[in-house]
Design a protein around this nucleic acid. Structure first.
Lengths: 356, 356
DNA sequence: TTGAAAGCGCTAACAT
DNA sequence: ATGTTAGCGCTTTCAA
């Protein structure tokens, strides 16, 4: 337990007086700066201890560093984001930097407000997961403060990026489904997936990879993308409609795990099982491994991405000036939500060729 | 999109010059303070807009408010906590206050460090979910800055509290299980549940309620508490051992949903189903409603608790001085993970009396 | 190695 | 209604 509750009233001046030294000396000690004798350091440290002194981050922010790293996230309800945060927390655990998180308020513009709030608070660096903010705006921001963006495929930028190879991940899923014998594969995407490949938005890249894989498999005429708003219930609703169609797909590839859970939910609602409709997701959130779910998905290594982002940021804060772009290789995780398609009656049967 | 990336170099001085007024005037405008003519307000607002001025929160922190609310949370991986955050975010959405979150680093002392970090950053108020921190420490803290604690049953304190009626919630679960006919009900608790009722820790209260309910049902000799470290995998491991016993329980009441998922996992691992071993949790995290899980649990109304906490904090910041303690009534949510027990062979059969 | 002093950008108290 | 001014607690030159 912390020895003493914060009084908020002890200043560097008090410590200096107690230790019989100057404020500057105390400042140097608490920053581990160069040029302090062991004797003075000991005296000062003791005084700090005795008085329960805590440096004011506000005052620090006016001159130097705040020893704070800001992390902006679009939502908390999707368990993938906490994974990133855990990685970053771990990476900063032994550094002098404190992590603070600013959630993007869904009621306001996507991410700008939260990132601004962080910068206003003079954080020493920013990690952000905002696929939709303007690259030019971010570039300008990065000129002011170190910035690492997670999940952006841009490369012509002043900010560092940590990104999963979304094309590879989506191809992994598609190869798996195609190998199982699926031909009617629908892709479920959120709004952001429609931004186009050029946008660098992960969902858009996955969508493009889906189309590409279908083309390559000679299934260009079967390409079908269905849009669902974010959230499990929304995906469930959309999927329910999809499954009610006479020509329902034999497999659904959702752009990430949350909607995939919604599809799985709809499959159950419709009285079907994964034996009839395969479902694949993306992210490998913890619940995907649960036997009641058993979702085939792609492990993005979110924790590693969060850790890497924090490490890159620390490097930047320490002075690196060249931009770096790190790509993390995703892995397919096959579970029982994907199975070979079953032949069906009517027209469907006529199509059921080429499966294993 | 935000009109302009933050330059970080425009100060209140620049705005004052641009608008041809004093710094104090600008300060009043941005704080909506008393005594500004509409004309001046317009001129200043225009200058702010034109220059892209953003007040420095550090500088503000040295004199007045930072318009920041700090929220400390013990972990992100348990989806219950994001619920609290969402409620708080919503409550602050239309206020001038920005929410920042400090995750308690699991590698360090439980919560102290994160709460301190928030206070060091001069937040105008703190919301925290740290059942284990010393009440005296918190009391001293609350003398310095408004504090609202979530999930503490203390009442002799300077800080406000928002808490679920954990005793009632646990009794709801127990009554349900007993009504179904269960007699061998094991309670799964984390370390923190062993703190004793006096501690006010929710898990301890639930544990006490479990014992009480068993006593009242004349099952005092069947009381059995099993300890499992936090986390789904840990609970799964512990449950697996439990289920391997010849005299395994017919029902497991887990202190919250995360371990309940682990128990459900273990039930599947052991080749059993909820028809053989009922499982109940606590929190009603989103996945509990999924048909593949269908977990009977208690809805704590986490979002409402988060919202309430933020509202109480805002009141405190606005000047309220009396301490308030809000109790939220939980609701039982019955799903298919709990069923009537089935008679079993051997000794178990002899005991199988009194069920419906 | 240590200290003195200037000043970061803002707010609050006080004048006008 | 508006302006002047004195710091808030630090860090950072610069001198000693």
């Amino acid at each position: 337990m912390a020895s003493r509750p914060p009084t908020g009233s002890v200043t560097i001046e008090d410590v200096a007086r107690e230790a019989g030294v100057s404020r500057a000396a105390v400042s140097k000690v608490i920053r581990n700066a160069y040029g302090v004798s062991p004797a003075m350091k000991a005296r000062v440290t003791e005084a700090i201890e005795k008085l329960g002194y805590r440096p004011s981050v506000s005052a620090r922010g006016m001159r130097g560093a705040t020893f704070t790293v800001g992390f902006e996230i679009p939502e908390l309800s999707n368990p993938f984001f906490p994974k990133l945060l855990e990685g970053a927390t771990a990476a900063l655990s032994d550094s002098p930097y404190q992590l603070i998180i600013a959630p993007a308020d869904p009621a306001h513009a996507e991410g700008y407000r939260a990132i601004q709030a962080l910068v206003d608070r003079k954080v020493d660096g920013v990690i952000a997961v905002s696929p939709m903010v303007d690259p030019a705006w971010l570039d300008a921001l990065a000129a002011t403060v170190p910035v690492v963006m997670i999940g952006r495929h841009d490369r012509l930028s002043a900010y560092d990026t940590v990104v999963s190879d979304d094309a590879a991940g989506a191809h992994l899923v598609m190869r798996h489904l195609l190998d199982l014998g699926h031909r009617d594969i629908v892709h479920l995407t959120p709004e952001s997936g429609l931004a186009g490949v050029g946008s660098g938005v992960p969902q858009a890249i996955r969508l493009a990879a889906y189309r590409e894989a279908m083309q390559e498999a000679g299934l260009g005429d079967r390409i079908r993308t269905v849009r669902a708003p974010n959230g499990e219930p929304e995906a469930r609703r959309v999927a329910l409609q999809l499954l009610a169609e006479p020509d329902r797909p034999t497999a659904v590839f959702a752009s990430h795990d949350e909607p995939a859970l919604g599809v799985l939910h709809a499959v159950a609602d419709a009285g079907l099982t994964p034996a009839e409709v395969s479902v694949a997701g993306y992210d490998d959130i913890q619940i995907a491994a649960h036997p009641g779910i058993s979702l085939t998905t792609v492990d993005q290594h979110g924790e590693a991405m969060g850790r890497l982002a924090a490490e890159l940021l620390l490097e930047r804060i320490a002075g690196r000036s060249e931009t770096r772009h790190e790509v993390v290789r995703p892995d397919l995780v096959v579970r029982t939500s994907t199975r070979p398609p079953r032949p069906r009656g009517g027209a469907a049967r006529l199509r059921a060729v080429g499966r294993t």
